[in-house]
Design a protein around this nucleic acid. Sequence first.
DNA 1: GCAAAAGTGTTGACTATACACCCATGC
DNA 2: GCATGGGTGTATAGTCAACACTTTTGC
Lengths: 238, 238
Amino acid sequence: MDYDKYAHEPFAVTVDLAVLTVAEGALYALLVERGQEPYAGRWALPGGFVHPDESAETAARRELAEETGLSDVSGLHLEQLRTYSEPGRDPRMRVVSVAFAALLPDPPEPHGGSDAAEARWVPYDKAGPLAFDHDRILADAHERVGAKLEYTCLATAFCPPEFTLGELQQVYETVWGATLDRPNFRRKVLATPGFVEAVPGAARLTGGRGKPAALYRAGPAAALHPPLLRPSPEGRPA
Amino acid sequence: MDYDKYAHEPFAVTVDLAVLTVAEGALYALLVERGQEPYAGRWALPGGFVHPDESAETAARRELAEETGLSDVSGLHLEQLRTYSEPGRDPRMRVVSVAFAALLPDPPEPHGGSDAAEARWVPYDKAGPLAFDHDRILADAHERVGAKLEYTCLATAFCPPEFTLGELQQVYETVWGATLDRPNFRRKVLATPGFVEAVPGAARLTGGRGKPAALYRAGPAAALHPPLLRPSPEGRPA
DNA sequence: GCAAAAGTGTTGACTATACACCCATGC
DNA sequence: GCATGGGTGTATAGTCAACACTTTTGC
């Protein structure tokens, strides 16, 4: 272990962000269009270099603010996924990228971001072949979020400060691509202490018609015991 | 995004390994004693630089082979934990470390490793204050492994090729620090298709006395549906 | 025989699932 | 009224935790 700073081929350290949101019953990812080679014209995950005085988490939150144009991203859920370090993943040089998943409620109109690239919300299934290994990162983010919905209270991160149980259920259904039984979902959520808290007296019409739904806020709980398991695609033994 | 290789303060990229094993009903971690400052004389997790032509996974497996002295580490479970990138985590320079958890069956006598530092198996609870942020990494590894035992077949990675259900149960009990009901544990494991496969006719005496136990091999399954939840420390609602 | 460890059986409590049903609102 | 979405009740099947019991070995 020698520590001459310049003895080794330098590594660039970047962050890549899989920013996800749920709108109108569909899952969207925030993508930027690349202006230059390699992969010019292809879509990619937003991201950038980690500055010398930043942790990867700090860099990720800075990039998130730049790309979404939101002034306050401190309340948003940001989670480290894993680090992608295959030697050939960027043809220009050795780039090690720490990937993050970020979850937003109502998606803002994306600004161009600092690097003036066009940013856009793209439906998850239509996020064609992305640049670099970003297809894999995006898929890993989806899988991770889907799994965490089962045993954490993460779903509220996709919801505005006040939301209905129907909206919360829609988050689960959209991320999992499955339909859930409304009465049972309701009971599960309300039976978990600290998952959601009722907003007294408040109600909101959702689809224009129908009974106004009661409003809830995210509660203090983080874990979900017992878990809310996603239904098996086919007949699972359980 | 500019790509001049030497424009930025260089980042060193390293891997740190939390190598865990279960022996005699206790959890052990593989540690190395540091010879030089900083943290001279303190214990630390094994690790080292990622070479220019390596991915972090490749580097981790190489370090694992060096530190354990095992000639074949290809079958061992190695899992990326997360990346630690706080600017001040190494006082000498900017070091970004990709941490891994590795799981071993019967622990080999550790060799000195490539860097001639003394390596030793230390009981998990007695792994005093470690160098750098390695306490945190080790704790994160423990937490991750404990969680993965619940919903994956990971426990077999702690077991030799052929093992008894009692030994498998001991893995769970040791990592979780809890006692499990033997009949129920047995049923759970055998009811999960592909978790373990019976070795026909084989049996082994375990504690010198008692009925010889049937032997099993790890099965092809990776996930555990339904999960084997660890008991709550105190009275959990469930 | 006795202790120790493996393996089997049973029971009662709890949970989940799949429904049927009622309520409030807009048109 | 009727369609739409929110909210409640319930019966059944399934699962789990606890514990009693049997089997096979060493001493």
